[in-house]
Nucleic acid binder design. Sequence first.
RNA 1: GGAGGCAUAGCUCAGUUGGUUAGAGUACUUGCUUGACAUGCAAGGGGUCACUGGUUCGAGUCCAGUUGUCUCCACCA
Length: 876
Amino acid sequence: MRKELAKTYSPSEFEERLYQNWCDKGYFTPDPKDPAPAFSVVIPPPNVTGQLHMGHALDETLQDILVRRRRMEGYNTLWVPGTDHAGIATQIKVEEQLRTEEGLTRYDLGREKFLERVWDWKHKYGNRIISQLKKLGASCDWTRERFTMDEGCSRAVREVFVNLYEKDLIYRGNRIINWCPHCITALSDAEVEYSEQEGSFWHIKYPIKGEDAYVEIATTRPETMFGDTAVAVNPNDDTTKHLIGKTLILPLVGREIPVIADDYVEIGFGTGCVKITPAHDPNDFLVGQRHNLEQIKVMNDDATMNRFAGKYEGMDRYECRRALVEDLKSEGYLLSVEPHAHNVGTCYRCKTTVEPMTSDQWFVRMQPLAEPALKAVYDGKVRFEPERFTKTYTNWMENVHDWCISRQLWWGHRIPAFYCDDCGEMTVSKTDITVCPKCGGRVHQESDVLDTWFSSALWPFSTMGWPDKTEELEKYYPTSVLVTGYDIIFFWVARMIFSGLEHMGKEPFSTVFIHGLVRDAQGRKMSKSLGNGIDPLEIIEKYGADALRFALATGNAPGNDMRFSDEKIEAARNFANKLWNASRFVLMNLDAEDEETALPALDELSVEDKWILSRYNNMVKNVNVNMDKYELGVALSDLYDFTWDIFCDWYIELAKSRLFEKESKGAAVARRVLVYVLTGILKLLHPFMPFITEEIYQSLPHASESIVISSYPKFDESLVFPAEEASLDRVIAMIGAIRTRRAEMNVPPSRKAKVYLVTKYSDTFKGAEAFMIRLASASSVEIVDAYEKDDAVSIITEGATAFIPMAEMIDLDKERARLSGELAKTEGEIKRLQGKLSNEGFLAKAPAAVVDAERAKLEKYNATREALLAAIAKLS
RNA sequence: GGAGGCAUAGCUCAGUUGGUUAGAGUACUUGCUUGACAUGCAAGGGGUCACUGGUUCGAGUCCAGUUGUCUCCACCA
C-alpha cells in the first residue's frame, strides 16, 4: 500500500527519521575496496566546542551537494567528518568557565589537571556540533569521524614534526614574533588582524651627547623607548649625515645609544631619524641584526613593563605610556603630539593588541615548502574555483615568512622536543623519551604546544590513517575537492597544500571550491558581539533543513558573500511546499497497482508528454553542466524554474485533462509520465534537499531502496522531441494570450467564452481543445477557416488567431487602438530584424545558426503582422 | 602602497565561452474559495545594466579609464 503524504509539508516529522535510516543502512560508509572511481572530501573541521553557525551551514551544504550527487552517480564516495581541537579558542573557553565558576586560573590547577578539564569539556560539548551537522543532513561517514587530537592525528603530527625537523625545515630560534599578552602566547602572522585605531605621534627630544643639541624622534609607541639601542638615519640623507657616529642619550633613562646609518630609513619622511628597538619591532629587529645591536625586551609576557623600564616597572604598557609621556613633558623632552590613525595588529581570537617582541619560538622554514606549493597551483594541479582566488593564494605564498608554530598554551599537541636537564642537549623524537641519548641525564619535554593549524594542515591524510599505509589513503587520497570560505585560504588551504606535497608527495586535492560569507539581511558580518547571528538550528526547526539548504545554495554566485534573510528562507520553504503538494497531487492520482517507474512506449505518449520530456531533458543537461562547473546556484535555479513553472504550472495542469478520465488509457500514460518526471526532479533536487526528496521518493513507485543511492539523471537524447515541443508551445502561447486579453478586459474566469480559431497549425490545435477549455476559460473551441463577423475580440499569436465573440464587452475604438499598438510593436521588431539581416557584416561574420534564428524570427513577426492587419481591417 | 570583489527592477540578487524584446525572488497593482498547494493560481506595472571611451556585424557580458563601495594583503618610525 502506498504511503500517503501528510496534507501539509512539515519537515520536522520526517527529517530525523530519514537521517537515522540513512546512517543505519550505511549509505554514507563506503568500502575502499569498491572499484568504482573515488570521490572524496574532508570536512573543514569545525571547532570541537563550537556551535553550528551559518558559515558552517553553507560550507556543509555545498559539500553535501557535491558529495550526494557523486554518490548517486556511482562514485565510491567518502566524506570524512571531524572536529578541530582549536587550541586557543577552546583553552580560552575553559579558562573562562574556570574563572567565572570557580574563581581559578589554569595555573591554580596546573597543566595536568587543567588538561583533564579541557578533555571533560570536549567530551561534554564535542558532540554538539556533530549532532548539528546531522540535523543539516550532511552525508558524512560517521564511522570515520576524526578529531585533530585523537591518537591517529596526534601521531601524524609528531611524524610530520620530526620529519620536518630532521630536514631542517623546522628550527628553534629567537625571532621577533607577534605576542598576545591576553592569551599569553606567540601567534603566527596569519593570526594577527589589523585594525585602524586612533593614536598619536609623540615627538621626543633625544639629546646628543656632548652637544647642546638634540635629535627629534617620532614614535607611536613611546613605551618601547626603554628598548631603544640606536637611532638610525639614512646614509644618503644630507640633512642627517652629520649625526652618524654620534651618541645620543635616552631621555629619562640616561642610557647612551649610537646613531647608525641604514637605508631602511626613508629620506624625506618625518624627521629622518628613527629610533631602533630591535626587541619590539620587526623592522627594527632586522636593522638590529645588520648592525649587531643589543635587543632589550622591556615587557613581560602580560605586557606589563619589566625592569628595563625603571620606575615604570610593573605598569601595564598603556599605563606606562601615559605616565612616561607626562614625565617627558614635564622634563621638557616632549616636543609635540599629533593625532595619528594607524593600523594596529590584534589577536584574531581575543582582539587584544598584539605586541611584537623577540622570543624563543619554533618556526617552519617556509621557502622550501612554498616553492612546490606554488608550482602545484601554477601548473594547474590545484585549481581554485572561482579562479580569482588563485591570486589570493599565490600572492600570499610568494611573500610568506617563516611560520611560528609554537604556542605557549597547554591545550594542543605538545612539541616533541626534549631537553636534557644535565647537558642541555635537545632531542626531537617521535616517541617520548625520558633520558638524554647523549649523556643519559633526565630530560623534560618542551612545554609549548603546536599551532592548531599545524595539525589541520595534515587533515586530508592524517584522517586517513597516515603515516600508516591504509587502504583509505590508497583509495581516497588525494581528495577530490576542498570546500571552504575565502577567509581561511591562508590559515588552512595553503598549509594543506604544502603539507600534502611534502609528506604525501601529492597535492591534497585538485580543486578548491571557495565560497563567501553569510551576512545578515543588512549585509553585516554575523558576529557574536553584534548579536546579529542567525542560528541555523532555529531555522531548521522552523522551516526545515531542506529550506535552509535551499536558501543557502540559491541566488548567489560562487565566492561571493550572500545575505541571509527571512524573505529568502520563506521563498525556499514555499518551494519545498510546492514540491510537496505537486507530489501529493501525483500520488492522489496513482492507483495502488501503479508501480512502474519506466516510461510507457514512445508511441503511447501524447504531445504534452513529449513536450515535458523534452523540457525535462534539456533541464537535466543544464543542471549537469552547471553542477560540473560548480555553478550550484544556477543549477538549482534551473531546477526551481522547471519544477514550478514548467512541471507544476503547465504539465500537471495539462495532464489533468487525461487524469480525470481515470480509467482511460491516457490517464495511465499520464500517470507514468508524471511519476517519471517527478522522480527525475526529486533525484536532481536530492543533493540540495535530501529530506523532502527522500520522503516523497519513498511514497512514489521507486526503483531504488533509497533516493540516496538511486541513479542520478543523465541527459537522454532519445527523449527530446523538438516538433512536439514547438507544437505545444504554440498552444501555450495562445492560452497565455487569451488569459492576458481576458484579464485586461476584466472578464472573470467564471465567464466561459466560445473560441474560434483560425490557424495554419490546425493539427496542433485540434488536440488542444481540452487544454483551452481548462486553462483559457473557453466554453468551446472550434477551428474555422475564417471568422468574418466583427463582434469578437481577436487574439493574435504567431501562427494562430483566436476570435472570442464578446460583443457587449468590446469597445471597437479601444480594440482598434490595442491592435494598432501591437502592430506598431511588431513592425518595430520587423524593422530591427530587417536591419540586422541586411547588414553585410552580420551576414558575413555571425554564425549561420544565429543568422537562421534571426530569419525565422522575422518570418514569425511577418506572419503576426499579417494577422494583425487583417484583424484591424475587419474592424474598420 | 599592492591586489581583488561589487555597481543590473523599490529591495536582495542571477545572468555560464559576446548573439531573441535583460531574468528570478520579494514588494507593488488587479482578478481568483480554479477537483495538489492562499506557503497558492492568473494577469500586470517597474530597468539608459554606475559613467566615459574602445574592440566587434553585434557588448550587461571583452578592453582601457573614471566614480562610488566593500574586502584582503603589506605597512613609514
